[in-house]
Design a protein around this nucleic acid. Structure first.
Lengths: 166, 166
DNA sequence: GGAAAAGAGTTATAGAATAACGTCTCTTTC
DNA sequence: GAAAGAGACGTTATTCTATAACTCTTTTCC
């Protein structure tokens, strides 16, 4: 008998209707952009959709590949990077430095920097926003006189469902 | 009158006799390698020395540039990356993912993953080993059923001395 | 409608990392 | 001491990631 996945496991690493994730993300992006007078162009929207294709961080060149296939003509890197820069600047996606990849933001709108749990087996990225972590960082920094402006917290390990599989 | 740098500030971002840092690092590396039967070859030692040139993370291609100048002949990337891989594997240097760069490890020998405070003004990287941070991460991960295997914590901001300057 | 600005196309290049294969030099073993 | 094997390093080529600089088009706003 299969051991069930922990009930604590977040949506991202459990089976779920992912089309909801995508449509939610797009709708939120639309709302945020219209609220702030930003232009969510067709290209930007498409790139955001591709990033939200799954909960696994996606490389810029993976996106480029899809766009190239779709359009017939060869898309060039700046096309993708500019769209990603827009999405990053406006808090719609996050960049995972340790993977050189991008993942959709779970709480767009609120300006924040997520913390990420990345499964080494299924590559799923779980976004956290634990003030216990960020506060520990700010406090430790303070103790050596350092003022924090931005945090990169990327954790690799095994997600709940991949522990079951193993 | 100049405001003094906070007394809390770590060595790395205060004026100090840096030659001690370098010679300590090399001596420790020698000791660790001989203790574990590892070969700290001339190349590896030289790369470690270059990484310890300062407390600022150094890119692989910066190292490559120096080696090329020194040797006359053109050193190739694998030469540097292999040396760096050795140093990483044996806990003598750390990789800073958000900068694609490498920095000397302050506590070699003890297997660990540091947390880094990186000054956006002077680029100095301060290594921390705060269990309050790593514990907060492990606990948060646990709460969603995630088992931590490795942590990347890289914080950008302003170090104590650069706050004084600004 | 026309000027200005924002977005996107295009070409070229810079920067980071690895694959694959060859060579040299040790050490180990017989 | 020679053969065998392993580890380190050299060499060439390539892949992956990202940006610079310039052009053209579209949108916005007066």
């Amino acid at each position: 008998m299969l051991k069930p996945i922990s009930a604590k496991a977040p949506l991202a690493c459990r089976p779920h209707d992912h089309s909801h994730c995508v449509s939610n993300a797009l709708a939120e992006a639309e709302a945020i952009c219209s609220r702030h007078g930003l232009r969510l162009t067709a290209l930007r929207k498409r790139v955001l959709e591709l990033v939200w294709q799954s909960h696994k961080p996606l490389g810029a060149y993976d996106i480029l590949g899809v766009l190239t296939e779709e359009d017939g003509r060869r898309a060039a890197p700046p096309t993708v990077y500019r769209a990603l820069d827009f999405l990053l600047d406006n808090g719609l996606v996050h960049r995972i430095a340790s993977l050189n990849a991008f993942v959709g933001c779970n709480h767009p709108g609120e300006s924040h920097q997520g913390q990420f749990l990345i499964c080494r087996n299924c590559q799923t990225a779980i976004e956290l926003e634990q003030s216990s972590i960020s506060q520990a960082i700010v406090d430790s920094a303070k103790s050596v006189g350092f003022v924090v402006e931005g945090q990169t917290v990327e954790v690799v390990g095994l997600c709940a469902s991949c522990q079951v599989a193993a």
